[in-house]
Design a binder for these strands. Sequence first.
DNA 1: TGCATGCTGACGTCATAATGCAAATATATA
DNA 2: TATATATTTGCATTATGACGTCAGCATGCA
Lengths: 107, 107
Amino acid sequence: MDRFLDPELFRLLSEPTRVKLLSCLIKCGRPCSVTEIAECCSIDFSVVSRHLASMAKLGVLDASKEGRTVWYEARTSEIADRFRAIADSVDQWKTQSCCGGAGCDCD
Amino acid sequence: MDRFLDPELFRLLSEPTRVKLLSCLIKCGRPCSVTEIAECCSIDFSVVSRHLASMAKLGVLDASKEGRTVWYEARTSEIADRFRAIADSVDQWKTQSCCGGAGCDCD
DNA sequence: TGCATGCTGACGTCATAATGCAAATATATA
DNA sequence: TATATATTTGCATTATGACGTCAGCATGCA
């Protein structure tokens, strides 16, 4: 389970600004440029650039450069699958037990 | 979807210490006291107290006071369900579009 | 009542990271 | 080549939040 409970992924989604950008991209369902999203969400484009890059690095977004424009697109299926994997792994642990009491080694 | 992409929930899971505590509780599958978990994970009990309280506040844990002891238990099914709901809502947005181009109002 | 136990809350410190501006880089176009 | 456009990067500032210590509060027990 700990393999799926990736703090880095959650850290990305814990920032309202990033979630706003991601939400925008998911809803648009098409590749968007940095400038486009920056204007759409009224956020400084340097901030948007950094956030989108970090999300692409973690596989949440797809990035493709075309001339001087970078197109970002939400990897929607990938995101949904990842959350389902988390749900499944959490469920699996329901039946297991890590400690018999005294000698617990959860860490 | 924005209803499910709750930054607060993700913020909780973005902290390795909190994930460690949650993981411990899920694996144990039974109510544990603050002291018990603090010793099990070798973390200062005031830190544990804070983290568990914040997770209970967001519905990730169940808390029940019994005398001077507070028993925390992971709401495993609730957690799994929440992640599935996120996955489903992300999938639903795949077919929709928030903007026709110029007048995009993603925010 | 006095004391031990279990937990919570306040406080100061520290580390991390988000932000906006400006400069730099890369690419397209005149 | 000169200039405009799209994005990235460096930097200083600011904000957020985690941590440990200690004091305080509630509860149980002698």
